[in-house]
Computed example of a mutant assay.
Amino acid sequence: MCTHQRRTQLLTAIAEWVRRCDQDVLARLGCPFDPFTDRFKAPGERTLRDVFARFVPAILTAAGLGIAHSINKSWDAVHDLYTAANALSTDADEPWNLPIYGGRPVPHSADADPSDPPLMLLEPPEVSQAAQFLTAVSFDELWSVVEARFSALGWTKQEHIEHHRDLQEFYGQAASAGHAVVKAVWA
């Protein structure tokens, strides 16, 4: 969970980024299309703040922000879980990097706060690849690789399987809709 200040900075960074997006990116993000202007409409910062204040995936989707999801978790731990797939596979594409840290960095504007999190854009083909990885990978096999280390840190199998299922659902829905995914991960 991020602090109020960090959440405010994140929403400002997202709003600045989305204002600069091309029409094709807004379309891939699932933004609403305005037939009167013949353009996709980017949500403003106020809309983002209002929606995130009542963070419910269905509301975000209805507001034109595509599908949204948040997991309050140490992302490094979830990424470490997926990196365990490297020990189980020889897939050179490394799809285990996609769900958490994968994607293309999106540069901030010159006047952006340098403490804003980096935004990563995962294009629809990569979203589909992430969804396929999350569906195909055996959670139990991943857990067997990391169990001793994670248990020593007090991390439980139950909390990680819940995050895994949430990510499976999120990426599955985004892939089915043909959406791109924009991620901000606070370190």
Rank of each mutant, 00 (worst) to 15 (best):
Q129T: 14
A110Y: 14
Q23V: 01
A85Y: 14
T61K: 13
I100A: 00
A175I: 06
E159M: 15
R39Y: 06
I59Y: 13
T3I: 03
N72W: 07
V145K: 08
A152W: 00
F139Q: 05
V56D: 10
A174Q: 01
G102H: 00
L26I: 00
T83W: 08
N86Y: 13
S115R: 14
E126A: 14
I67N: 08
I71R: 05
P107S: 14
L121Y: 15
S109P: 07
D140N: 15
M1N: 09
L153Y: 04
V145P: 01
A15W: 12
M1T: 12
T156C: 15
S138N: 05
P57H: 07
F33R: 04
P125R: 04
I67K: 09
D76F: 05
K183S: 11
R28T: 07
R6D: 12
A42Y: 04
S151D: 13
R6E: 11
A130P: 00
I59V: 10
A68M: 09
A180T: 04
T3M: 06
F40Q: 04
A110M: 15
A58P: 01
E94K: 12
V106T: 02
V56G: 01
H108F: 14
A180D: 02
T12C: 14
F150L: 05
M120I: 03
H69Y: 08
E159W: 09
L153W: 07
A187F: 06
R104Y: 06
G178F: 05
R46T: 15
D91N: 13
T83E: 14
P35A: 10
A62L: 10
I67V: 13
G44V: 07
F150C: 00
C21A: 13
H164E: 08
P32Q: 01
V51Y: 13
S176P: 03
F36V: 10
Y82W: 04
L88C: 07
L81C: 06
D76N: 07
L142Y: 10
E16I: 00
S89M: 05
C21P: 01
A152V: 02
G44E: 12
A53I: 03
Q158Y: 13
P114K: 09
I14W: 11
A131Q: 06
H69I: 00
T3A: 11
D113V: 05
L10D: 12
E159K: 10
G66K: 03
A58H: 10
A63H: 08
L119W: 03
M1P: 10
E126Y: 07
N97I: 01
N86W: 10
D76V: 03
E141S: 12
E162V: 12
A110I: 14
R28K: 09
D140C: 06
A15S: 15
R46E: 14
I161D: 10
S138A: 08
S109H: 13
